[in-house]
Every structure is written in structure tokens, then in C-alpha cells.
Simulated scan of single mutants.
Amino acid sequence: MSQGDHIRTTAEAHEEAALPQARVAHADPDACTAEQKPLPEAVARKPLEEKSPAEWAYERLILYIQNFEEQLDSEHEIAMGFAGSDTGVLRIEGIGFFDPDIVTFYGMDEEGTKTQLIQHVTQLNVMLQAMPKQTEDATPARIGFRLAADLEQDLSGER
């Protein structure tokens, strides 16, 4: 055995098997994607097998939204389209989940009408999109950072 080899203990192997796996291949070698980032401690704290499909989908959506927003300029905000439907685009104002299998999205459609989409996790299929911000002088809304902070508070028991 070489000096760099490490024999894993049973506990280490079990812990590694419980960690979620993610991988990405991208044409741009400098692209920063959500799959490349380590899971925030608040998300990694609870073992994957203890999460419902809705909770796990909710947490990962927050990570994708936050990563997407980090790449937007000050003239754009995030919106979400729903693949396979004619629902249109939703300017994201919030997301939530209801165990064991429902994820919900709150926001406004392109005409400014209050909108909520409730979706079963097996039907979850969203597209994140950059939209021009609603008003010229306003700071763009960044929901991803609020969602991540809320997730951190939920998991730490603070409120």
C-alpha cells in the first residue's frame, strides 16, 4: 500500500454512501454550477434517508435558484418556467414543500397576476430563466439568498 492510500473504516464507507452525489459536465470549463458546490451545512446536517422527496427537492431547488441568481446582472431577476405545460413563466417570490411529496411555487406571471403552482415531486420539471426586472430604478429581487437563509434557520431550530 502506498503512502497516499487510505483504508476506509466501515463508518466512513457508510457515511460516504449516505451523501448525495452530484456531477456536471459543461462546455465552459469556468462555469460555476450548483452541482460543483459543497452542500451547505444546514442541508448536509440531516441525513438524506431522513428527508422526504418534497424536502429534498425543495432544498436542491434553493441551491439551484441561488446559484442562478449569483450569475445575473443587476438588470435581471429570476423566473421559472414549467416544462411540459402551458403555465408560462412565474417570477419567483417563494417556494415551499408539504411532506411527503408536494412542492409549491409562489409568484407572479408575466402579466403581474398573483400565481401559485402546486406540483407533485414526480412531476417536477422546471426551467430557470433571467427576466428583465420589473421597474428600471428598483434593485433586482434575489429570492435565492432569502430562501437559503430561511432554510438555515429551519434546520438550526431558530425562528
Rank of each mutant, 00 (worst) to 15 (best):
Q36E: 11
Y106H: 09
D137V: 10
E69P: 04
A148N: 02
G112T: 01
A54V: 01
M80Y: 00
K133D: 06
M131T: 03
G88V: 06
E15D: 15
I102F: 00
E15V: 13
T33F: 04
T115R: 04
P53F: 00
L39G: 02
E50P: 01
G94N: 14
R91D: 02
G157R: 10
L124D: 04
M1E: 14
S156A: 14
E15S: 14
A22H: 00
A54C: 06
A27D: 13
L128S: 08
P47W: 03
A149H: 11
R45M: 10
R159T: 15
D109W: 06
D154S: 14
E16H: 11
T135C: 13
A149M: 10
I95S: 02
E110C: 02
S156N: 12
L117W: 07
S85E: 04
Q36W: 07
W56K: 10
A34M: 11
L155E: 15
G94E: 07
S74Y: 10
T104Y: 15
E35L: 06
Q21Y: 02
W56F: 14
Q71R: 10
I78N: 03
A27W: 12
I62G: 01
A44L: 06
T113S: 07
N67G: 08
A42L: 06
P53E: 00
V121Q: 03
A22W: 03
A34E: 09
H76A: 05
A130N: 03
T135K: 13
A42C: 15
I118N: 03
H76E: 05
Q66T: 07
I92T: 04
Q129G: 08
E59C: 04
F105C: 01
P132L: 11
A148P: 03
G157A: 07
L63M: 09
S85I: 06
L155S: 10
R91W: 03
E75W: 09
L19K: 14
P20A: 05
P20Q: 05
V43M: 13
T10D: 12
V126E: 04
A138K: 12
E77F: 08
K133C: 04
K51G: 01
D101H: 09
H76G: 00
T139S: 15
R142F: 07
T139P: 06
L128W: 10
G107Q: 02
T87R: 09
P47N: 07
I92W: 01
I78A: 03
E158G: 12
